[in-house]
C-alpha cells in the first residue's frame, strides 16, 4: 500500500512538472504553482479579508503568481497551513492569534511554538469603545472613576481576544487606582457588532466595543436618536493614528479621532509608568517546515512592494496604517507584545 502511495505521488509530481511551463512564475520564485492565503476570519466583509486582499494583490503583481485569499476561519486555516509546507499555502491573521491563546480559547495554540511568524504589513487603528450619547459618562476617566467608586459598569465585548483586551486594560486601570474595585466592571459577552450595538439600544450595556469603521456614522447621529453614540476611547497608539490620512474616516477627521487615542486624550494606565495601547496588526503565519529560502523570498518581495510605495496609498485609503516588518523583526515584535499583555491578563486572574 505504501509503495503504491509513493508511486502515485511520484507520478502526480512528474505530471505536474510536465505541466509546469503552463503556470506562470518568476524565475527566482521558489514557490511553484498557485498560492492560497487562508485567513483567520470567516467573514469576507471584515478587516482581515480587506487587508489581506490588498496585500495579496500587490504581492501577486510583484512575484507574478496567482494568489487567492480564502476566508476559512482560524481553525480550518491552521489545518490548511499545517498540511502544506511548500509555501503554496500561507496564512494571514492578527493579534488574535496569541490573544486567543492567552485567553485560553478553545482551538488556539501558542502561535510562536506552532508557526513561524511572517512579515507584518498593516495596522487597523479603529478598535475602540463607545457610550450612548445620553450616557452619564462623558469620557474614560469618568467611567474608570465611577467603577472605582462602586458603580457597576457593563461593557459589551466579544470574549476571548481583540475585543476583550481593551476591557481587560480598563479593569487593570481600575485595579491600579482603586485596588479591589475592578470587579465593578462587568463584561457583557456578545458576538457581532450588531449584537453589541443592540445591547446598547436595549440598555443592557453602558459601554460597548466597536470600531471607527463600523460606528463612525452612529457618532454623527443627533443626540435624540436612540442609536446615537460617542467614542470614549480608541485603543491604538496615537503615533499609529497619526499615520492615517488627515481626512480620517467618513466625516470625522484624523485630528478629531486623535482626541480619543491612548496617550493623548485618554489615559488608561498599564502599570506605574506606561499607558496601555493596543494596535491590531496583521501579519503572515508560515508553516514551521517552510524553507528559509521561501521565507527570505517573501520578505524581499514584500519589502519591494512597500518600497514601490503604491500599496501604502491603497491601505491608507481603506483606513489601514501601513506597517511593514520582515519576518525576523515581526517575530521579535509580536513576542514582546504578547509578553506585555500576558502580564496584565495574569494580574487580573490572580
Amino acid at each position: 500500500m505504501k509503495t503504491l502511495m509513493t508511486t502515485a505521488k511520484v507520478a502526480l509530481l512528474a505530471g505536474s512538472v510536465a505541466a509546469a511551463p503552463a503556470i506562470a512564475f518568476a524565475a527566482d520564485n521558489p514557490i511553484r504553482g498557485n498560492i492560497r492565503i487562508v485567513i483567520g476570519s470567516k467573514s469576507t466583509g471584515g478587516d482581515t479579508y480587506q487587508a489581506s486582499s490588498i496585500i495579496a494583490e500587490a504581492l501577486a503583481d510583484k512575484i507574478d503568481a496567482n494568489i487567492k485569499v480564502d476566508a476559512v476561519g482560524f481553525s480550518a486555516g491552521y489545518q490548511a497551513l499545517a498540511r502544506v509546507p511548500s509555501g503554496n499555502t500561507l496564512m494571514i491573521f492578527h493579534d488574535q492569534a496569541y490573544l486567543g491563546h492567552l485567553y485560553k480559547q478553545k482551538g488556539y495554540e501558542d502561535p510562536f511554538k506552532q508557526w513561524q511568524i511572517g512579515p507584518s504589513f498593516a495596522t487597523n487603528p479603529g478598535n475602540g469603545y463607545l457610550v450612548p450619547k445620553n450616557s452619564p459618562y462623558k469620557n474614560m476617566d469618568e467611567i474608570l472613576n465611577a467603577a472605582g467608586n462602586g458603580q457597576t459598569i457593563r461593557v459589551a465585548i466579544q470574549p476571548g481576544g481583540v475585543s476583550e483586551i481593551g476591557y481587560t486594560a480598563m479593569k487593570n486601570a481600575v485595579r491600579l487606582a482603586y485596588p479591589g474595585q475592578e470587579d465593578n466592571l462587568v463584561a457583557l459577552n456578545t458576538g457581532s457588532q450588531s449584537d453589541k450595538n443592540q445591547a446598547m439600544f436595549d440598555g443592557l450595556a453602558d459601554v460597548i466595543n466597536g470600531s471607527v469603521q463600523a460606528n463612525e456614522q452612529y457618532t454623527r447621529l443627533p443626540a435624540d436618536d436612540q442609536k446615537a453614540m460617542n467614542f470614549v476611547w480608541l485603543t491604538a497608539k496615537s503615533s499609529t493614528l497619526q499615520g492615517a490620512n488627515p481626512e480620517g474616516m467618513g466625516q470625522t477627521s484624523r485630528d478629531e479621532l486623535l482626541q480619543y487615542a491612548s496617550g493623548l486624550g485618554v489615559k488608561v494606565p498599564m502599570d506605574a509608568e506606561n499607558d496601555f495601547t493596543f494596535d491590531k496588526e496583521f501579519f503572515f503565519l508560515y508553516n514551521k517546515r517552510m524553507s528559509p529560502e521561501v521565507v527570505a523570498f517573501l520578505d524581499k518581495a514584500l519589502a519591494d512592494v512597500f518600497a514601490d510605495g503604491k500599496v501604502q496609498e491603497t491601505l491608507k485609503k481603506s483606513f489601514f496604517i501601513p506597517n511593514f516588518r520582515t519576518s525576523a523583526e515581526a517575530q521579535k515584535h509580536f513576542q514582546a507584545k504578547r509578553d506585555s499583555y500576558a502580564k496584565i491578563i495574569e494580574n487580573l486572574h490572580k
Binding site: 502526480l12 503556470i23 504553482g33 498540511r83
Partner: peptide, 15 residues
C-alpha cells in the same frame, strides 16, 4: 489526496 500532493490548482477535483 491528489489535492494535497498538487495543492491549489484544483487538480484534486479534476483528476
Amino acid at each position: 489526496f491528489i489535492g494535497s500532493v498538487l495543492p491549489n490548482m484544483g487538480l484534486g477535483f479534476l483528476l
